[in-house]
Design a protein around this nucleic acid. Structure first.
Lengths: 342, 342
DNA sequence: ATGAAAGCGCTAACAA
DNA sequence: TTGTTAGCGCTTTCAT
């Protein structure tokens, strides 16, 4: 691998001049610039990022922390963050914590030891060490898909209230009057926001969403099955159901299919996330797409801006993006009467 | 961030002694060792990996090249490679090439400039730059899920022939006699191996797999739909079908469901990969699981061994792991007569 | 505009 | 066993 020195020798200038010519921030004469550029081309020189990283403490490396990898939401985060990072000339180190705070801590420690330029957290848990990290080091941090109480931590989220509103509006517009909802964990603010958007819209329209028609799930497939089973067992009355993510919606559809309850003829089902399965299944799932691509590129921008501007205080950064309804085959006009199992 | 120097000062020894004490390869007296360890603990010192990386040219960083991220196979690679790497104290930089050789080249170039310890390629295309890289630099390389003509490149793959054999044997054991197969791209050796394992096993059993019952797909959902549509349109006769990946199998099931052809009553369907969707759908897909976790951990081991041993020649490394049949609901005894559409 | 020299934080050769 | 010194490849004063 050729080094700066090699270029300097070839161009007949000092290494500092080469450095200046390459980085282009400090003026260099026309003549030398050309000579350096030629030398660079001749030996195909590429600056070593480790050496540069050591010297200027910026490695063009971003860390992405996800709680797990085999989950479409986080896959999207990985994908779009990598995409955005690469477009800005950054590489991405990913770490899956498996929701284990110790693993998370080890990973973050590694990132710090690598002079990482910034860390993106996705949907951190409350047990996370983000705050500590942020306070101890000056590494820029941003959180996607979750808001934290502490307002000095930048975050970018979907407008979760709006997602509930959109789901409700779509179902209302089809004529539904009796609703049910399977939520994510309600200790997390964004899920309460989703539910609030849903219930308030339903109620404002004079429709009904009884308390026993709300089931708190955990975002997993099984939990969707359990939710719908619970509703049917307790004789809950509804014709339209919103599951706060697609995995749970799939669980609902799976259960209904097994019990020969036709969708959307007997019940309409709406999901959230727009995962791959949602359009591969039969019938294809009506759902709400999260603006993941935008969320990730905003997150990357926030980190890079912060790292570039070296602003210690960046004020409150809280970006909120809009979801989008995707109508497919699991929603239709309500049936004459609510479903029942017998 | 505390540095070696700080530790040295606190412990009252030189930086080189601290370095030795920490790395533990060169003997240090009991007394100093304790003093250093105490100092390290006191100021919570962690070696800076960038500096070390510059010095010893080993960064404890691995690169993983995937053609795309939103695909369960590659998600598995990312997941399990990250898992294996983290267990060995390595971090992972991932790069998605989107099957674009230029993007791939840029990514690899970055990795080289980062003194990366090794690169893992997953299912490289023939247009890939792997070979060039391997020849120009001495960076250890390994390929998962694909073999290359050049035998000096280590690879780890599933026994693809066996996967075809297993699929056939399972269906034969249920009593099927008329087979069909939707393959992946046949310019890729592993897919030909899969097909060979399938056809040879079928033929050896005296059962039939006509040429017109073989459809060359591209591993995508849509291609599964096209394949089954082609079979039905051309009046192909079969009661059992193997799709060489689960996405295509899902396409098949989707099409059959739309045309009210019951699975497994009318046709048995087997997939390959054991993706998440395969058990979330209704009926759940009988499929063959690839040993992805083992493949990835072997790949990581190969890289690390190579990097550690500094062996230039490692002989021919070609690891082959066994697939595993997972019986679920899409396979059963054959119907009286072959399916037809009307 | 350019060069000399120092230094980022670490390890390794050489002396002692 | 330990300290001194040099250097990995780069950037950045500080002179000129």
């Amino acid at each position: 691998m050729p080094s700066l020195k090699d270029v300097a020798r070839l161009a007949g200038v000092s290494t500092s001049t080469v450095s200046r010519a390459i980085n282009g921030n400090i003026p260099v004469s026309e003549e030398t610039l050309r000579r350096v550029e030629k030398a660079v081309r001749d030996i195909n020189y590429k600056p070593n990022l480790v050496a540069r990283g050591l010297r200027i403490k910026s490695t063009k490396l971003l860390g992405l922390v996800v709680p797990e990898i085999q989950h479409e939401t986080f896959i999207s985060f990985i994908r779009f963050t990598e995409e955005a990072a690469e477009a800005k000339g950054y590489n991405l180190i990913i770490g899956s914590t498996n929701s284990d705070p110790d693993r998370e801590e080890r990973f973050i420690e590694n990132l710090i030891r690598r002079n990482i330029d910034g860390i993106i957290f996705s949907r951190v848990s409350d047990k996370s060490h983000v705050l500590k990290i942020l306070d101890k080091t000056k590494i820029p941090v941003v959180i996607i898909d979750r808001t934290l109480e502490r307002e000095d931590i930048p975050s970018v989220v979907m407008d979760n209230y709006a997602s509930g509103k959109i789901a409700a509006e779509h179902l209302l517009s089809l004529g539904h009057e009796h609703f049910a909802c399977i939520t994510g964990p309600l200790d997390i603010a964004i899920n309460r926001d989703r539910l609030a958007g849903f219930t308030e819209t339903v109620h404002k329209a004079g429709a009904v969403l009884e308390d026993k028609c709300i089931y708190e799930g955990n975002f997993k497939f099984e939990s969707g099955k359990k939710g719908i089973a619970y509703f049917l067992d307790t004789g809950a009355q509804f014709t339209a159901l919103w599951a706060q993510n697609d995995y749970m919606a799939m669980g609902v559809l799976n259960y209904l299919s097994k019990h020969s309850i036709p969708v959307p003829e007997a019940v309409s089902v709406v999901g959230l996330d727009n995962i791959q399965q949602s359009w591969m299944m039969q019938p294809a799932l009506t759902t709400i797409a999260q603006p993941f691509r935008d969320m990730c590129s905003h997150a990357v921008d926030i980190i890079i801006d912060h790292a570039t501007n070296k602003e210690d205080k960046m004020g409150r950064i809280q970006i909120m993006l809009q979801p989008e309804l995707i109508v497919r085959e699991t929603t239709a006009e309500p049936p004459e009467k609510c479903i029942t199992v017998n």
